[in-house]
Amino acid sequence: MPQAFIDILRCGALSLLVGLLLTLAGSLPAAADEDEASAWLERLGPALNMTSYRGVFVYARGESVHSMQIAHRYNDGVVEERLVLQDGGSGEIVRKGMNVVCVLPETGRVQLDQVIPSGPFAEAFTSQLMPVNRWYRAEMKGEDRVAGYDVVSLALSAKDPYRYSHRLWLEKSTGLLVKSHVRNAEGEVLEQFQFTSLHIGEDIPDSEFEIRTKGREISRTLDEPTPAASVVQRMNGWQLGWRPEGFMPAAAPRSGKGQAVAFSDGLAAFSVFVEPAGPVTMPTGASKIGATTVYMHQVKEGGNAFLVTVVGELPPQTARQVAESVRIEDSLALGAGES
């Protein structure tokens, strides 16, 4: 065999080896991958508010699928938003800054005034960045296309069994969330959200933000964000003995006569409601609607019965554990005995 040929062979083998090493090295630094994923996550919150876009998205959980049209504009620091239901009864939600107007179908069994968001809106919350990486393993999952836009996909896998895993698809140039999945430990998709048509850009006319549905309107001005300290006040009379690590007190819903506290780990959230048991007897156990679990059980304290309800994007086991850790300390503070 001519020496030159052997040289070529040797050279080829060498470059093959080098190539192999490079490939290996490329797959090793998962940390870099996580950094990239984190960088994308940091864009997620601001992008949701500060990007202007309009489109139609579908949302599915359990057996229900909804399609909604959305227009979102960020104008002089004010968020304007209009959501129109595309199926079922007609209805819409229009928001300008802290003013929200809801027109929802009368066919729903739930009273309209319960539907209005009564808590603080997202800005204040998303600005405080959660260390999502501590509870989820972030991983880049490559590139894709959603609703005509190039997207990056990232997986956030739960590091413990207390929460679900998430998969997010973010538009490349803005970081806007255009698709998401919530999955359980078996990889089953429990809840999904996805834009089917989307236009990102500032050129959305004012007319897109006007109420057009006729019906009972309910408007409300949102309260200023509640400082987390007031959680203590809202937990007056009861204590939460356990919650999964990483869930911090968050902006909370206002419950009627009871006490509600919400917690979030940055991705998932759950709310705990403690109320004197009402005239309606509720079963003990978990109900699931897609990724949302409702766990209810009764606690007796000092001759009074209380209904503890945990609602959240949590596995049923976690919801139960949270619910069962609630201890009633002062039944009077919870309004027991009042009707």
Binding site: I70, V110, P117, S118, G119, A251, P253, A262, L267, S287
Partner: peptide, 20 residues
Amino acid sequence: MSRYLLEHAQHNSVGAGRGA
């Protein structure tokens, strides 16, 4: 039960920063 679901969803829509 749906009252709880709604209250939680309200919080979710406004608190968790997931927008739509």
